[in-house]
Amino acid sequence: MKILEAIELKKIYKKNVAVKGISFHLNQGEILGFLGPNGAGKTTTISMIASLIPPTKGDILLNGKTILTNPKPLRKILGVVPQEIALYPELTALENLRFFGKIYGLKGNKLEKRVEKVLEIVGLEERAKEKIEHYSGGMKRRINIGAALLHQPEILIMDEPTVGIDPQSRNHILDTVKKLAENGMTILYTSHYMEEVEYLCDRIYIMDAGAIIAEGTKNELKAIVSKNDRIVMKIDRYDKEFDSALKSIPEVEGVTFNNEMFTIIYKKGSNLLGNIFRLAEEYQINILSIDVKTPSLEDVFLQLTGRGLRD
């Protein structure tokens, strides 16, 4: 059942078009993934849903009713985890949570209970009395999420909640998200980390340059690239002309270079290896390792845009 729906949503800033008229929906109880590189328009889209900025065009419906003229029904049931930490640095975690609970009309005993519960969810009961500014990056992220959970929102929007943190905190957050969904929360999760979206999400929209370029379940998306194979190759030095030469091979669908590694997506069944070795010799490049793999979601993006998610 559609709980939230965006129709032809568009946002134009003075110079650039941040979101180019996208339509999508959020089903009750699912974890929906928004996958896209920097500047794809994820945050802009979320800001429009959260009525922080008005769309230039289009509509957003909650259970079929527009929220643009009356955002209040959505605001009551919406939790937003912003991309940047949004907490009072001089206050303790406890004080921050109390404050954000009060915003949603919680008070007294009920407020204290919820604060306790949220601290438990994010696993910071022990450090609750410390100032946020003394927290580590991961702990800040966790309280940042906690601040959106106090009023037990039906819909939770998370904007890249794991950016820039250690693996432990990251795993903790991912597990938290899973648990929240199991308890019936509807979640919109944005990220440019492939693995996260692959691990968490039931359905995925892939965004690039303000547009949705693909949508579907994990498997549906992978089917897009199932006609393809992928080669990952390590070389001793990068050469621009070698890169262009690879791209100009007819069977090649996409090429990226990252961490001294080329990733090449190409039509299944075509014999590419011979071509690659020949080009390497021509440009005097040493291949240190080469691997043929089955495609991942990242390759979907690579194939659709010809670029990597995190170039």
Partner: peptide, 13 residues
Amino acid sequence: KYGIWDRLIHSPL
């Protein structure tokens, strides 16, 4: 600056 403003705006306040 701290993003608190946005939290206030998308709350029922």
